[in-house]
């Protein structure tokens, strides 16, 4: 698997080795690991645990506690639909549903071809453009259900 390459493990290993102390650094290391790998699969959690001298069960406990950490890989194009108050009242939910319908995914997972992943979040600070959708770094404002297919087409 390319995304779990030796180089990435090496980079993470070096980061851990560079820490002045390994005590109490689990969350910081997991942040770094997610930055490197994009997500935190079992192999990475096991690696982190062994390197820090923390049980794998505890690592998994922390990963499942914080919603920021994810165990599924993000797609090539990561779509975030804002469900903050402003976006929500201006119709973000039908937009999210439309993405789900077209991409044929239920919750917040990644499409089988790895092209798209979908998540919802709470407010990205662009309420004037509500409802807001981001694809990667690009921001789309005043999105309607009808616009969804067109947005996706840009990345096909």
């Amino acid at each position: 698997m390319e995304e779990l390459s030796q180089e990435k493990f090496q980079e993470l290993g070096q980061f851990i080795d560079s820490l002045p102390s390994k005590k109490g650094e689990l969350i910081r290391v997991l942040h770094k690991a997610q930055e490197i790998f994009g997500y935190l699969p079992k192999e990475v959690q096991y690696f982190v645990g062994r390197k820090l001298g923390v049980s794998t069960a505890k690592v998994y406990g922390v990963v499942t506690f914080y919603s920021y950490f994810t165990m599924s890989p993000k797609g090539k194009n990561h779509i975030s639909v804002c469900l903050g108050t402003a976006c929500y009242v201006r119709g973000a939910e039908p937009v999210l549903d439309e993405f789900r319908k077209i991409l044929n995914i239920q919750g917040t997972e990644t499409t089988p071809d790895g092209k798209f992943s979908l998540c919802s979040l709470r407010c990205i600070g662009a309420c004037g453009l509500a409802p807001v959708v981001t694809v990667g770094e690009k921001v789309y404002g005043r999105v309607t259900k009808e616009m969804v297919a067109g947005i996706l087409a840009e990345y096909k």
């Binding site: 923390v54 049980s55 998994y60 406990g61």
Partner: peptide
């Protein structure tokens, strides 16, 4: 499991109502 035995097979997983005690993954 963790303190007395230092085995580390069990941990609190998830949070809130969904929390349970279990092994990794």
């Amino acid at each position: 499991c963790n303190t007395v035995q230092s085995v580390g097979a069990l941990s609190g997983i998830n949070r809130g109502f969904d929390a349970y005690v279990g092994p990794a993954f």
